[in-house]
Amino acid sequence: MTFDKFSDLVDFYGADISVWPNGLREECSAFAIDNTAAKNLLNQERLLNEVLKSQQIPEFSGLLTKVLYQELPPQQQPFLDQVLGWLTPQQGSHLLWWRPALIGCLPLLFGVLVGNFYSFSIRAEVDELDYWEDELTLLSLNDYTENSY
């Protein structure tokens, strides 16, 4: 047992060696008896505990009443409840049929967006390219030289 190790144990388990784990109790008690620094450390730890205990907390008179009767704002609902509440409103529901309809359209919008950005290895046949190549070939066959005489 070294003083540093003993100091760590005091930090962890406190000043009362009798409540330390069984395996450590005997060895540490013997160390504390023989070692003056360890003895001082235990005394300081005990003193510290007493000082900490001696701290006074004032009376918070009136705090209970303040907390109990403070104005309570509306509670925050979980996200799912908020979504469901928005989808199925309690009032004026006959006018708000578009909300479920809008939600129903979301998969469609999603499909459009995905389809717009990804081809998924599907190649569309492009006829335009062949058409323009033919067109250029025909144009190149024409004689455009001007007959000056």
Binding site: F60, K66, V67, L72, P73, Q76, Q77
Partner: peptide, 25 residues
């Protein structure tokens, strides 16, 4: 014990229970 003065303690305590009410879920 963290703040060390009564007025702020009362404010923080009130706010704590207000948050409990709002965020209970």
């Amino acid at each position: 014990r963290v703040l060390g003065n009564q007025k702020d303690t009362e404010d923080i305590t009130q706010e704590t229970f207000l948050r409990l009410w709002i965020n209970a879920a």
